[in-house]
Each structure stands twice: as C-alpha cells, then as structure tokens.
Nucleic acid binder design. Structure first.
Length: 390
DNA sequence: CACTCATGTGGAATAGTCGT
DNA sequence: ACGACTATTCCACATGAGTG
C-alpha cells in the first residue's frame, strides 16, 4: 500500500518505486540473471586517475590510464553549475563509458580525489540523489562491460597528473608529470582520445529513435503507442485529423513537423490561432488538442515541436485568457438528502435494497459511481472483470 | 552558513465523465 | 465522435526548520 494516500486511488505505488522495479528488471536482464559469487578471477587492469575542477573562470574534467589513453574536456555553462562532487562522478562515468570495452574480466584501481564521491562510490550508494544516479550508471556499466572498479581516494597533492588535465591550459603540465612518474606501463604509449580537449560536454539533444537498431523499432512503436489510454489517444487523433490536417492542406505544409523544423513555432501558433479564431473551442479544449498534436509528432519519431520555441508558455497563457469560459461548478449532494433517500427504501423490494447497499458502499469508500460500474453494455467501455465489481 | 528534509502550492499532463 | 468539464497525479519550486 506504499504511496496510497486516499481510498479511491488506483495506482498503489509511487512513480519512484515503479522506477526502482524497472531498474532492477533492466539490470537483471542485462546480466541474464547471473550474480558474482566470487571476484577473484578478475585480473588487475590499468590504473586510472581522474579529476574535475570548478572555478568561476573554467570548469573541466579529465582522466588518464596507465594503459596509455587520456582525455580532458571543458564543461559547458549548464554543467558547470553542478556541484563539484557531481562533476567528479561524471568524469568517472565518462571514462568508464569510453574505456569499459577494454576492461573485460578485469578490476580497475580507480583514483578519485573528491572524498564525497569516492566514499559514496566505495559504499556504492549515496543519499544525495545526484550522486546516486551516477552510481547507478556506474553499476550498470560495470555489468555491461563485465569489469569491476575499485575506487581509492587520491589526495589532491598526489593527483598531479589528472589535476592539470581538469584545469585550463594544463596539458603541458600533465605531459611532463606523466613522463616524470613513468605512469604509462610499456609497451603501452601515451595517447590522447580522439576528441580530447573538446570545448564542452553539452548534453546533445537526442530523440528516442536515434541510433535504435531497426529490429527494435516495432517494439518501441508499440510501447509508445500503448503508453496512453484509449481515451487520451482519441484526443491525439482528433487534434491531428480534424484540426491539423486541414491546415497542412491549406498552407501546403507536410503533415509531420520534423525535428528542428525552423518554422515549427509559426506552424504551431497557426494551429492554436485557428482554433481560437473559430470561437467554438474553450481554452481547455485548445490546450488538450495542442497536447495531442505534440504527442502525435512524438509518435511519428520527431522531437516535441514545442522544444526550443521561445515564449510558448506566455503565448498559451494569453490564449487561455482569451478563450476563457467560466466553468459550471458541481454541487455536493448534501448528506441529509442521502439519509432521506436511504430512509425511503422498501426493504421488501430487491432492487431498492440493492441500490441502497451500493450507495452506502460508494459513500463509505469514497468511490465514484464510475469506478465499480461499466459505462455501456457494449463497446470499449463495456464490462471489464478486472475493473468492475463482480 | 550550506545543506537536507518535510511540507505546501500551482500548474501541466493525463484520465475520466457527461451531454449532444 | 466530439467537446466541455472535472478529477487525479506528478513535478517544480518555495519555504522554513533542523543539522553538522
């Protein structure tokens, strides 16, 4: 009953809890249900040092491995706002993602000079959500690449190699230091990653279908298509068929708004203005159909057309003001009326007693009448034994 | 002081009902 | 099927108290 706060709630778990189940499911499938009962068959792999730095002027990260490769980069403005322990952890994740494939069946001594992340990594979980997310990713990566990472703490003074990598213009200092300490074990040679020194690590926009192997396309479509209830899917169809299609014909637009279409803002605005103009629709309905059209584009493998459109929210607020109609309030049925109804029930009449029974159950369980009863005899809303009272 | 944690609030997303 | 309307859920964000 976790997450159940009110009697009539149907979903009995919180979103967070469901995501946790999902995570375990994914992990177990990745690992084919295996567990490690011993780890002594893992061989020692290369040693890795990592570091991140954050200052007003420059924020960056970098790592180097005794097997030769090293990498460094500058964080973009958004990433630079994150706490330093997150950036340290992110640097580790970046490193494992690129080096993991060469670490199969090995354990990696991994030096981190941020205690907060290192300690969390050693106990493998953290109360801080941002760190816990990184640790979860690291866990998945270790399973994926079949390797083990053993973290150790690196005093900042001892991190004379990775430290300059994370700072502005530190490459020369790094190269000298690596030579001096003979860090790279021959026959390996020191070698920067192909895009080392990149200006930033922005999170580039990617939609769900980018890079998805063709074999998974139908499954992905099925999942996305089934994501919405039939009721909601109906709105998506109406928005597209009834309101969007005529516009595309009129203006000669393609039916699908492609990702990053530079005219998407104007197209969407036209869509809204047209609905506003014909004065048949109330603000809520317009809002619903805008939501529907956006969803439709997602189903067509495109990015949400509203992404990146400036002032969209303000525009929609104005539309809401213009199309506002006061709603008719619903009134509560007074308790005294319910009692009066119950008092008139004829105890010898089966249907009346049945009705009274029903009424009391609904009242006592905070249920709404639609919860236990089917809406129609036939059609989509007919009797459903999983949902309605037997 | 910086951070965490609990709690409250408003809005968006979505599911559902009801009348035509 | 369509459109108007309500209900529920989730999330971002504000606030304020507690904590090291």
């Amino acid at each position: 009953m976790v997450g159940l706060t009110v009697a009539w709630q149907k979903r009995r778990t919180t979103r967070k809890e469901r995501q946790d189940y999902r995570y375990f499911y994914d992990i177990l499938s990745l690992n084919l249900g295996r567990g490690y009962f011993r780890t002594d068959h893992f061989k020692e792999g290369p040693t890795v040092y990592s570091d991140a730095s954050r200052s007003k002027k420059y924020t960056g990260g970098g790592w180097c491995s005794s097997a030769g490769p090293y990498d460094w980069w500058r964080y973009g403005a958004a990433a630079a706002k994150k706490p330093i322990d997150f950036l340290e952890g992110d640097t580790v994740v970046q490193c494992v993602e690129s080096q993991g494939p060469s670490w199969r069946q090995k354990w990696i001594p991994f030096g981190v000079d941020n205690q907060s992340f290192e300690k969390s990594a050693e106990k493998s979980w953290s109360r801080a959500e941002r760190l816990n997310l990184l640790l979860k990713r690291l866990f998945v990566l270790q399973i994926k690449f079949d390797c083990l990472i053993r973290f150790f703490w690196l005093a900042s003074e001892d991190n004379s190699m990775a430290d300059p990598l994370s700072r502005e213009n530190g490459l020369d200092a790094f190269l000298i230091e690596v030579q001096r300490r003979a860090f790279v074990v021959p026959p390996a040679v020191l070698q920067g990653m192909p895009d080392a020194g990149r200006a930033s690590v922005p999170y580039p926009r990617a939609i769900l279908y980018d890079g998805l192997p063709a074999q998974y396309l139908p499954l992905m479509d099925e999942l996305m298509g089934n994501r919405l209830a039939v009721k909601s899917m109906g709105k998506v169809d109406i928005a597209f068929e009834k309101y969007w299609k005529p516009l595309t014909v009129e203006f000669g637009w393609p039916e699908i708004i492609l990702t990053d279409d530079p005219e998407r803002a104007g197209k969407l605005a036209t869509f809204v203005l047209r609905m506003l103009e014909n004065k048949k629709l109330v603000a809520d309905s317009i809002q619903t159909y805008v939501w529907g059209l956006r969803w439709k584009m997602k189903l067509e493998h495109q990015a949400d057309p509203v992404f990146g459109v400036m002032h969209w929210h303000d525009f929609m607020v104005s539309v809401r003001v213009r199309a506002h109609v006061p709603h008719e309030p619903r009134r509560a049925l007074p308790m005294r009326l319910i009692l009066a109804m119950l008092a008139t029930v004829d105890m010898d009449e089966f249907w009346e007693v049945q009705f009274a029974f029903f009424l009391i159950i609904l009242l006592g369980t905070f249920s709404r009448s639609e919860c236990p009863c089917p809406k129609t005899f036939t059609g989509k809303d007919r009797w459903n034994p999983d949902k309605h009272w037997m």
